[in-house]
């Protein structure tokens, strides 16, 4: 076993990689090693992995159905039967929390998939092309930035119809402008560098330069920004749910749970506090991990 481990280690650390895949693996290994040496990033990763596992195994982890009502046992405090108490319909808060992690991760995942590529593409194209292309794309971005995000998302969801998927779409469509701004700023500094001039000298097309040379260098700061946005995304989803435009009852969405618990916050504080803590922990996990990831991916900190 130790023999196999040491040859694998040699394979991953030898200064003379023998193929493209070998070099890519070494690179990933190096990033992982830097990440592993960063305790806060590992704590963040631990939180994310834990929540992903909870979401994956929700039926086994939850003690009750998240939908089952029991009006004889409303607003019960935490007990052996209901670990985190019950809400105003007598539903088990713990089980709703567990199932709610699925909704939260789905919101985060889909919003990231929508905002990341749009922001990166628009920012990188605007920054690299310059001139009227830049002006046009940035004015469109300004228009989106001019509206408060929640208001724009509200307008979109009420136009599209109130449900969680449309809420995700609306949050995604309103979330890309800051990312585009960031990607553009990164692109402006990258564009002036010698290696981009070198790519032009060898005859590389603008598309090739933007996709192959500029975008990979924009990624680290974009990933960090995305992870920092996660908390806001969950809160906007919660806000939409609260206004009846996001997650529809009885779907166990953390933001909607807080909104429902608001009515009882002075007497049965745990109903609102517990999903609040969950949102807080999930956001913290993403923030810590994102920060560590930036350090690990940043080519300038290579040893």
């Amino acid at each position: 076993m130790s023999g196999a481990a040491s040859t694998l280690r040699d394979y991953l650390t030898t200064p003379t990689p023998r193929s493209r895949r070998h070099a890519a693996l070494q690179r990933a290994w190096l990033a992982w090693r830097r990440l592993r040496n960063n305790p806060t990033a590992m704590a963040g990763l631990g939180i994310i992995v834990l929540i992903v596992l909870v979401a994956a195994f929700a039926p086994w982890i939850a003690t009750h159905s998240p939908f089952e009502q029991n009006l004889n046992n409303r607003l019960a405090p935490p007990s052996a039967a209901h670990w985190l108490g019950t809400d105003e319909f007598g539903r088990d808060v713990y089980s709703r929390l567990v199932y709610g992690s699925r909704v939260a991760l789905r919101i985060i995942g889909l919003v990231t998939v929508i905002t990341g590529p749009i922001g990166l593409l628009i920012g990188a194209i605007a920054g690299y092309a310059g001139g009227w292309v830049d002006a046009a794309l940035m004015r469109i971005t300004d228009i989106f930035l001019a509206f408060p995000r929640l208001i724009l998302a509200l307008a979109l969801t009420s136009a599209l119809g109130p449900n969680i998927d449309n809420a995700i779409l609306a949050i995604g469509i309103t979330g890309w402008p800051p990312l585009a701004r960031l990607a553009r700023a990164e692109t402006l500094t990258i564009r002036a560098s010698d290696f981009i001039a070198a790519a032009r000298v060898i005859g590389a097309s603008a598309t090739r330069i933007v996709v192959g040379h500029v975008m990979p260098l924009c990624m680290p700061s974009l990933i960090v920004r995305l992870t920092l946005d996660m908390a806001g995304v969950i809160l906007i989803a919660a806000g939409l749910g609260f206004l009846g435009l996001g997650a529809q009852p009885p779907q166990p969405e953390w933001g909607a749970m807080i909104a429902a618990g608001r009515k009882f916050v002075f007497d049965q504080w745990w109903i609102a506090a517990i999903p609040g803590i969950a949102i807080c922990v999930l956001s913290l996990g993403f923030n810590l991990f994102g920060d560590g990831l930036r350090d690990a991916l940043d080519p300038k900190t290579h040893s």
Binding site: D194, F195, A198, I202, G203, H213, L217, P299
Partner: peptide, 22 residues
């Protein structure tokens, strides 16, 4: 590009940091 090629002053800046030699 096929007729004339340029070698830059600073080899620390003229190679993309994320690209292998290959």
């Amino acid at each position: 590009a096929r007729m004339a090629q340029l070698v830059f002053q600073d080899p620390y800046a003229s190679l993309h940091p994320l690209h292998t030699v290959d």
